[in-house]
Amino acid sequence: MNAPATNATNGMPAESHNLSVYVANKPGVLARIAQVFARRGYNIDSLVVSPAGDGHYSRMTITAQGSREGLDQVMRQLAKLIDVMRCVDHTGEDAVVREMALVKVGAGIEDRTAALQVVDHFGAKTVDLTDRSMTVLATGESGKLDALVGLLSRHRIIELVRTGKVVMARGEQVT
């Protein structure tokens, strides 16, 4: 994400945080937000941006490592940006966190059955199939996708694309 690879934790324990940032859909917003992280030495692990509301707004879900104190500062700086409506940390909170992965596996006709058993077990789907490869679509929590990818890597993984996390607060809480 064009940010230095080191995490500025100031000696505090680093933990993974899921920030949901609701922003005006204007040019330069992503750059301003990325700069808040980069200037303080934070690396963004994953970032999902999509239109929200009536199209005048965007939702950004940002996963980053850092101490709670450090990320509190980052969130205050984010909230201060004119184009940011609100910024909420859903870490350790009652929130639904999901991710999607597309895995292209080099499984030919002879070892396809084994791969399909894994796909079936994880509730994933095959969305593309050729003589030499199959593409698997899976959704779930990041840990589940890690496990799926681990098992599929016994076959040859040709390509792997993950979306990064999306988050929604449970129940009546606002994301």
Partner: peptide, 14 residues
């Protein structure tokens, strides 16, 4: 200049 000044402005417009 919109990009160059981004870290040192309160806000900016193109």
């Amino acid at each position: 200049i919109f990009g160059i000044t981004m870290p040192v402005v309160k806000h900016s417009y193109l």
